[in-house]
Design a protein around this nucleic acid. Structure first.
Lengths: 240, 240
DNA sequence: TGAGCCATACTTCCATACCAGTCAAGCATT
DNA sequence: AATGCTTGACTGGTATGGAAGTATGGCTCA
C-alpha cells in the first residue's frame, strides 16, 4: 500500500490522516515503524503542516506515538490496548443493540438479514470485503438505534481492534462471525432484548481470543521489530 | 476568566487547549462566540500555530466548530448533543460500576465513603468544588475497575455535559446528587451488581432533566446570541 | 429608494523558516 | 582499548508569510 495521491483542491490534512490510518490498520506500516513529518510530507508532496495535524489525530486515537524532539512511531499493538478498546466498544454496542431489539422495527430486521446474505456470499479468503461488511453491520445497528454520535466514538475506539482483526483473520473465522451476527439479528427479530445483548457481547468478545492467539503467533508485532535507530534514509521502500 | 499566562518553556498547544476548554465549560466563552486563531494567539501572546492545534482538539470533542475560511465558533449547546454524550457515558459507566460492584473491594468502598463525606462538607453554593469532587468520584470508580482508558473516553465525551451541569447547578441539587452517589456506594458495598448499575444509570440520567430545564430557562444558550448564517452546512471533519 | 456589483477586510489552510532538544557517531584523551 | 566529550544531523514545536475562500459595507446604476 502506497501513499495515495492527494487532492490539493480539498483539505489535505484529513486525506493524509485517512491514508496513514488505513495503512496502519492494514499492517502496511508496522508497529514500531518510525514516521517523520518531513519524510511523510515529501512522500505525499505536501508541506509538513497538514502531516503534523494528521499525526495529532492519529496520536489521539492511539495509532501513533509522538515523542517530542525524538520522533513519531506507529504504536505497537498491546494486548491491554486492544482489551481496553474492546471494553468500551462492548459497553456502547451492548447498549445500542438493546435499543434496537426493544424497538423491533421490521424494516431494520429485513435490512440486517439482507446484509447477512451479503456476508455469506463473500469468498472466505476475502478478508477485506468481509471486514467492511462487518463494519457496515455494526454501523447499521447504531443508525437503527439513532445513535450516530455513539457510533463515532466506537469508530475511534475500534482502530486498535481493527489492526488485530486484520492480522488474525482466517477463513474459518468468517463462518463463526456470521453465525454470531445471525444470533444478534434473530434476537432482535424476537424483540428479545436480553438475548440480543448477550449475543452482541459474545460476538465482541471474540477479539479476546484473537489477540491472545496473535500474541503467541506474532510476538514481533507486540514487542516491535524496528530498532529505534537508523532514521538514516536508505531503504528504497519510500516507507513514509 | 481570562487567558492565563502561558509557560513558553513547555509545549504551548496543550496549554491553550486546556485553557480554552475550561473557559468554554465554565461559560466564560459563550455558545456561538467567534474565536479566531489570530485573536486568540494575540491574547495568549503566542503564534497562531499552537492555537490552531488547540482548535483542532476542541473541535474533536465538539466544543468548537471550525468552518473553513469562515471562522471558528464555540458550539452552541444542543439538547441532542448532551443526550448523545450522556448515552455513551451511561453505557461505559454502567459497565464500570458493575465491575466494581462485582469485585467488592473493601478499600475501594472505604475510599468512596470518604469522598462522600467530603462531598457533604461542601458549601451548597460552591458549585465548582462539588463538580470537581463529583468528577473525582466517577474517576475513582473507573480506576477501581482498572479501566483508565475507558475513563479517558468518558472525559472526552462529558465535555458537553459539563457545560450544562455548570449552568444548571443549584444548591438543592447537590443533596440529591450526593444521595445518588450514596446509593451507588451502598450497592457496591453490598456487592449487588444489578443495584449498582441501576443506581449509576439513574444518577447519570439526572442530566436529562437538567438540560430540559435549561432549554426553557436559558434558550439563548441554545439558539445562540451571536446569530450565524449559513446553518445549512455541516463542516464535520473539515479540519483534521 | 432599492438592487446588484465590487473592493476589502477578515477567516482558515498550507508552505516555509527557524528554534531547541535528542541522540549517535567519531574524535580526543586517558 | 576504553571512556568521555564534541559535533552535527536528525526530531518535533513554534513563528510567520502567502494563498484561497467568505462575509460585509459601500458604491454604482436603474
Amino acid at each position: 500500500m502506497k501513499p495515495e495521491e492527494i487532492d490539493q483542491s480539498a483539505a489535505v490534512a484529513p486525506q493524509i490522516y485517512r491514508s496513514i490510518r488505513a495503512r496502519i490498520v492494514a499492517g502496511a506500516l508496522e508497529p514500531g515503524a518510525p514516521l517523520s513529518e518531513a519524510e511523510v510530507a515529501a512522500a505525499y508532496r505536501v508541506s509538513r503542516q497538514p502531516v503534523r495535524e494528521a499525526f495529532i489525530r492519529l496520536a489521539a486515537v492511539g495509532l501513533v506515538q509522538v515523542r517530542p524532539q525524538r520522533g513519531t512511531y506507529v504504536t505497537e499493538i498491546t494486548e491491554k490496548a486492544v482489551l481496553d478498546a474492546r471494553f468500551v466498544r462492548e459497553a456502547i454496542e451492548a447498549e445500542i443493540v438493546r435499543l434496537v431489539a426493544g424497538a423491533a422495527d421490521p424494516s431494520v430486521v429485513a435490512e440486517l438479514r439482507a446484509q447477512l446474505a451479503l456476508q455469506r456470499a463473500v469468498k472466505p479468503d476475502d478478508a477485506a470485503t468481509f471486514l467492511r461488511l462487518d463494519e457496515r453491520f455494526h454501523r447499521t445497528l447504531a443508525e437503527a438505534a439513532d445513535q450516530p454520535y455513539a457510533w463515532g466514538v466506537v469508530e475511534e475506539v475500534k482502530a486498535q481492534m481493527d489492526r488485530v482483526r486484520m492480522l488474525s483473520y482466517y477463513p474459518q473465522h468468517m463462518t463463526r462471525l456470521i453465525e454470531q451476527h445471525q444470533a444478534v439479528v434473530d434476537a432482535i427479530a424476537d424483540a428479545d432484548v436480553a438475548a440480543a445483548e448477550r449475543a452482541m457481547r459474545a460476538h465482541l468478545r471474540e477479539i479476546i481470543q484473537s489477540v491472545r492467539e496473535l500474541v503467541s503467533e506474532r510476538p514481533d508485532l507486540f514487542t516491535g521489530t524496528h530498532n529505534r535507530r537508523n532514521h538514516g534514509r536508505k531503504s528504497n521502500d519510500a516507507t513514509v
